[in-house]
Computed example of a mutant assay.
Amino acid sequence: MPRQPRLGMLIGTKLAVWGDPVAHSLSPRLHAAAYGVLGVPWDYSRRQVGEAQFDGALTALDEEWRGLSLTMPLKRAAAASALTLDDRARLTGAVNTLLLTTDGPRGFNTDVGGLVATIREQGVEEVPFGRILGAGATTASALVALTELGARRVDVVARRPEAVVPLIGLGEALGVEVVPADFTMAPPSGATVTIATLPGGTDLGAAADGLAAHGGLLVDVVYGSWPTPLATTWQRAGGLPVSGLGMLLHQAVLQVRVFVSGSTEIELDDEPAVLAAMREAVMGD
């Protein structure tokens, strides 16, 4: 097994979220709240960067820069740029956090942990059978999250079942059965948790009624336009829909851990106070 490069010295006081689009991002608000509680004078901004510009923009950063949060469409490009990957980033091929060190960038996927924490926050500690709606960029993170919560079977419902094929291979690596289905013929489900990775505003029409019929917890990764049509249908059917704000919040806490200590595993000083301030920054009372 190749040796992992050592962790280089942490540098800089500048941080930012990059993506395209990025003007809607709540990350600056979240991170400013965290660093206010921690008492560190770091500057966190946002910048619109497309996939074609990513490599050049990353190379141009100087020693004033400590790290980056990455949103779409940059997560795979960020993974390719990283000197090392944490386990979740390696499994998903997606990096949403780059820690810049004297040795080079280190990549992390905190989306997985954000989903796990959101589901647990709703009182669900174990998910033997899960379901994912959509087969887009967040689906691999959703699959890893459900597996960490104990899933042994995950149905992935997509418009194009062939898009699920790469997830079947990931499922085999994780020891979980991935069953593809489409929205018009989705089988009855006893899933404890459904994670929707569909674009905001997606209206599934009559298919939503069938998907919501068995209730349970719906984590819809959308947070900008809430409630989504699916969330409204879910609630009407007696289930519990929650928005992607929880995922955004908890993945950001893990990002702050990375920027402070270089690890997602080391808790922050007075982390409950940091979490409360970040929650207030995006959710209010």
Rank of each mutant, 00 (worst) to 15 (best):
D86T: 09
A117L: 11
A276Y: 01
A23R: 14
R3V: 14
G93Y: 06
R120S: 04
V17H: 06
D182I: 09
T59M: 10
H24F: 13
L248Y: 08
V164D: 02
L249R: 04
G169Q: 13
L115G: 00
E267R: 12
A276D: 15
V95F: 07
A237N: 02
F183Q: 05
L143V: 10
E280M: 12
A34W: 05
A52H: 14
P5A: 03
P187F: 05
G171H: 04
L143D: 13
V221C: 14
D209R: 13
V37H: 02
S45H: 13
L61N: 11
G210I: 06
K14T: 07
V178M: 06
T194S: 04
A173F: 00
D269E: 15
D209L: 14
P73L: 03
V219A: 12
H214F: 07
K14E: 15
A252Y: 01
M72T: 10
L133N: 04
L99W: 06
G134M: 06
E177N: 01
D209A: 14
D182T: 03
L10K: 11
D220P: 10
L170E: 07
L10P: 08
G239P: 09
T264Q: 13
V282W: 10
M72V: 15
W65F: 12
L204H: 09
T59P: 00
S243G: 11
D111R: 09
G169I: 00
W18A: 02
R88Y: 12
P229K: 07
P241A: 09
P241K: 10
E125N: 12
L248C: 06
Q235E: 15
T102W: 03
G169Y: 01
V221M: 14
E267Y: 00
A137F: 04
L217C: 10
W18L: 13
I132G: 04
L91F: 01
L115E: 12
A186T: 10
M1N: 03
I11A: 12
A135R: 09
T97I: 09
S69C: 15
W65Y: 08
L275Y: 03
L7F: 01
G113W: 04
P272C: 05
G205S: 11
V256G: 04
E177A: 14
F259S: 04
E51C: 08
L170I: 10
T192R: 07
R88K: 13
T84M: 07
A207G: 00
G262N: 12
T192D: 03
V221W: 06
D285P: 15
D20V: 01
V253L: 14
G113C: 03
